[in-house]
């Protein structure tokens, strides 16, 4: 299992290759990459991501442990960036490995749903005419109920 919280960019392709290459008991790997979206009417200058050092790592590890146990994963990886990012940059990725694809898909969705609302990150969008903290969407909180 791997959890990394960093300011540096990561290479999603290279990360996937490394993650897949060490799996000996898995027949399926699923990955998801989240990227910084531009704002439709108000071009994004940059996005600022703040986090809670210490708690972030703990929360992510706990979410990964839960996924590994529940879906009997061979492995799981979470990389999440913080600091200043611009539109189109990769913010985060998750990867899951399991014997069969269904578990890897479900576990990846679970990881995404949980880290959206339970990992201490906050996004602020800086545009030309001002900056705003991104509000949590009620769908994101509701998404946890299905697990």
């Amino acid at each position: 299992m791997g959890v990394r919280v960093q300011t540096d960019p990561f290479n999603a392709g290279a990360e996937l290759k490394t993650f897949s290459s060490v799996q000996t008991n898995a027949g399926a790997v699923v990955t998801f990459t989240g990227i910084v979206r531009d704002l439709p009417d108000n071009p994004l200058a940059f996005m600022e991501i703040e986090h809670y050092p210490g708690m972030t790592e703990k929360a992510l590890e706990k979410i990964c442990d839960t996924a590994i146990e529940r879906w009997k994963l061979a492995d799981a990886l979470v990389i999440h960036r913080y600091g200043k990012l611009t539109a189109g940059e990769d913010i985060m990725m998750v990867a899951t490995a399991s014997k069969h694809r269904k578990d890897a898909f479900e576990a990846a969705e679970f990881l995404m749903d949980y880290l959206k609302s339970r990992a201490p990150f906050w996004k602020k969008e800086h545009a030309k005419d001002g900056a705003d903290w991104v509000a949590q969407r009620s769908e994101d909180e509701d998404a946890l109920n299905r697990w």
Partner: peptide, 23 residues
């Protein structure tokens, strides 16, 4: 994460923040 009625007995660190927006 706790609720607002959580005890502070023996606690070293308390953090306040808005709902999280990771991912």
């Amino acid at each position: 994460l706790v609720d607002f009625d959580a005890s502070l007995s023996g606690v070293r660190e308390v953090a306040f923040f808005p709902p999280m927006t990771g991912g």
